[in-house]
């Protein structure tokens, strides 16, 4: 049952600190238990081994290697669960739920001029997207605008392999002095005519609000990858909703489930 969602035991292959509080983890699926399809923008629920921590941690997927059955998660330590995760060593085991949610549709984005806007720990899923777009039958022209607090950057070199990469830092210690929204605006006005067909953004909520406003101002379609505190991760508990412009398909009350209808939404479909 390849399409069945399952809780699967995985093994830590590596778990390396790549910036202050940011870790790069590879989890290997056992043979025959690997997910059949993984799209950029999707996520998994990672269960902690400490049973007092009940709920799966929703973590976006940074990369997927189907040959090795390796899932790459780049995450920030945000609480007790991710702290436990950060202390894992290779050989340790973690149960994983998923692949969960709806990711980006590469067919829609292939061949387009795509602006990726990543704020902080919003960058990792966009790296997966950049790599998928570079490998598409008709590659996209990708610009990545990435915002960090300081020069303590992560994943920059990997973005540069496939994409024109613009870095903004809040404190000006690297690249453009300003936030990622300033960098995105600069990109949008860079040439006489609009240089992008679509924006894909992931980052903190205020940033996504600003991207949504810019997308409207410049009449360019945008996709936003949202996050929220989740419990089940599979659409049952209705914990992780976002207000939507239209009726949501589950409850018909303009509250879509980020874990199920999302986490990637069209900007105009969500009221954030």
């Amino acid at each position: 049952m390849a399409d069945m969602k399952t809780k699967t035991g995985t093994t830590v292959i590596k778990n390396t600190k790549i910036a202050d509080g940011v870790f790069d983890m590879t989890l290997r699926y056992p043979e025959g238990k690997a997910p059949s399809e993984v799209k950029p923008g999707q996520f998994v629920g990672v269960f902690m081994n400490d049973a007092s921590k009940l709920l799966p941690r929703p973590i976006s997927i940074c990369g997927w290697d189907p040959e090795k059955r390796d899932l790459r998660l780049v995450y920030r330590v945000a609480g007790k669960g991710t702290k436990e995760l950060s202390e894992a060593s290779s050989g340790d085991a973690f149960e994983v739920l998923g692949i969960l949610g709806n990711g980006y549709d590469i067919r829609v984005l292939a061949g387009k001029r795509v602006l990726l806007a990543g704020g902080g720990i919003g960058a990792p899923p966009l790296l997966g997207l950049a790599n998928a777009l570079a490998g598409a039958p008709v590659p996209a022209q990708v610009t990545a605008a990435l915002g960090y607090r300081t020069a303590d950057l992560f994943l920059k070199d990997e973005f540069e392999k496939t994409s024109r990469t613009v870095i903004a830092t809040d404190d000006g210690t690297y690249g453009f002095h300003g936030n990622v929204i300033d960098a995105v605006r600069n990109e949008l006005v860079r040439e006489g005519e609009l240089p992008f067909d679509v924006i894909c953004a992931c980052g903190p909520l205020p940033m996504l609000r600003a991207v949504k406003a810019l997308a409207k101002e410049f009449s360019v379609p945008a996709y936003l990858s949202l996050e929220e505190r989740m419990a089940c991760g599979v659409g049952a508990c209705l914990g992780c909703v976002v207000k939507t412009a239209g009726e949501d398909p589950h409850s018909h009350v303009h509250n879509a489930r980020i874990c199920t209808e999302g986490p990637v939404f069209k900007a105009e479909d969500v009221e954030i």
Binding site: C240, V241, V242, V253, N255
Partner: peptide, 8 residues
């Protein structure tokens, strides 16, 4: 419609 988020 339920409550505002965070809900859990």
């Amino acid at each position: 419609p339920g409550n505002p988020t965070p809900r859990v």
